[in-house]
Nucleic acid binder design. Structure first.
Lengths: 229, 229
DNA sequence: TAGATTGTTAATCGATTAACAATC
DNA sequence: TAGATTGTTAATCGATTAACAATC
């Protein structure tokens, strides 16, 4: 129950979950690791290994019951718990998060949104009113939200992160492009959009180089180059 | 020049780049892999291995020149190229992307934004006007943007992705929670916010379980459990 | 019972870390 | 020259894949 699961496994679980959710909607009752693997572009072996980190959810000769597996993975991911989220920063990104219905559906309740800009305060987004940053300490201390989403400029993110942690928050969803240095007990999930875009850029260039090499048609040479240099 | 680089390496490059950018701003001239590793929480060996996939950027006995290494990693990531980006979907998320100044600074130019909603069309965001979706085909065909960012509901994302690819786009930055099935030559980078939030949720629960185990103070037992089950 | 498919162990593959000779 | 630190090879570690006995 306490074995440390590798991040590689944890990254795949939400994908399994999403896909099982789709099957479930289509009222598919059972699925084998082989079928699942074909549709999801992973190996059947990997799926079975991943799941068996958490227990045996299948049945020999049958496969997996879609509904059951979906529910169980949901529990593993903690989606059977309610999570109260405060969003700090009500710019476009903060508002996008606040309005994203998918989150509410998964048990993440946006309970408050904060910003410094006077013209934003009082404005209704999602189904909460934007509050002044000056109220943040009081709110966090009293309401003890589960997650703080940081959607503010990186100049303020470090300080605000330290603050909310000192006021009792132990999970941070960080959209600011900085590395937060927080106590070990605090869980941090980063969404670094600039890094994502850079990876895309890298892959664009890599594809261009590949394409050029291919069109030059020195077939054997280019294959060679691919393996040696 | 054509060796395939593992995704693990490519994920780290933007972090190195960001960090070197900070050092550069502080006018730090040189840095060793050891110093860098301490601040970035990776091993010195890994940094050297990663960099040497692309060439020798350092000097024995000295380390790395910050400015030079920053520039070279930028080139590797393709940040010396201009990238013209169209954003499809001008909801909060699309607007957040359009307004995010960091991207422009890195050579990603938002050249157009599209949406279906009549009330949004014509509105100015970033420094472009929102256009009608009906103009998308014409625009893409003529302007040949480098990247299409999909910030629209998942119901439409698959179709729009197929469309823009058929019109010549070969790089997609996908924010919709679907797996896009596109021709091999198309580069896709996904930003799946719901999955990110689920990983956070998993880690929250894992931390809770750990905490409970710790407070129960059966020190030896819990250590045992951690390794065996 | 025979066929199918899991759970799990063993083999392989790849990524990370350690070590050290090269060299600035 | 001596000290420092890289580039690179070798060792280790972990994750993925393959194989198969268990069993529904």
């Amino acid at each position: 129950m306490e074995k440390v699961i590798s991040t590689a496994v944890i990254k795949r679980l939400p994908r399994y979950y999403r896909y099982l959710g789709e099957l479930r909607k289509k009222e598919v009752v059972r699925i084998s690791s082989k079928e699942l693997s074909e549709r999801m572009n992973v190996t059947a072996s990997q799926i079975r290994q991943d799941l068996n980190n958490f227990g045996g959810f299948g049945q020999q000769g049958y496969g997996y019951n879609v509904e059951y597996l979906y529910t169980e993975i949901g529990k593993i991911l903690g989606l059977d718990q309610e999570h109260r989220v405060v969003i700090i920063g009500a710019g476009n990104l903060g508002q996008a998060i606040a309005n994203y219905a998918d989150f509410a559906r998964r048990g993440f309740d946006i309970t408050a949104v904060f910003d410094v800009k006077p013209e934003l305060i009082g404005k209704e987004i999602g189904n909460v009113k934007i509050r002044a940053m000056s109220e943040l300490k009081d709110y966090v201390t009293k309401q003890k939200p589960d997650i703080a989403a940081l959607a503010l400029p990186k100049e303020y993110a470090v300080q605000v992160a330290n603050d909310v942690v000192s006021w009792g928050v132990s999970a941070i969803w960080n959209f600011a492009p900085v590395e937060l240095r927080l106590p070990k007990h605090v869980v941090v999930e980063n969404v670094h959009l600039t890094e994502s875009l850079m990876r895309l850029s890298y892959n664009i260039r890599a594809a261009q180089i590949k394409k050029n090499a291919d069109t030059q048609k020195n077939g054997k040479d280019s294959e060679c180059a691919a393996t040696t240099e």
